[in-house]
Amino acid sequence: MMMMMITCKEASFLIDKSQYTDLSFKEKFNLKLHLFTCKFCRLYNVESKLINEKIQKIYKIKEYNYKLSDEQKQRIIEKLKN
């Protein structure tokens, strides 16, 4: 396996990809090596994970508790009748 220094551009891509899927051994290794030397990407790593956690929350229906108003219901029922 070739040890390779990747750029911030590549590292941040891998950080985001890793939120969705497992990285290959080589990708993981290259990312670790980069994070070891790069403060900005370490920050990106932390922030990307936090954002991911909050994104999950946004798309969970559990977080929502809206009710259709009677007026809204009536509008839909009227449409169904036609």
Binding site: Y59, E63, Y64, N65, Y66, L68, I76
Partner: peptide, 11 residues
């Protein structure tokens, strides 16, 4: 209605 409404809002 309410369940589907909330589902739709979440997406």
């Amino acid at each position: 209605g309410d369940y589907l409404y909330n589902y739709a809002i979440s997406k």
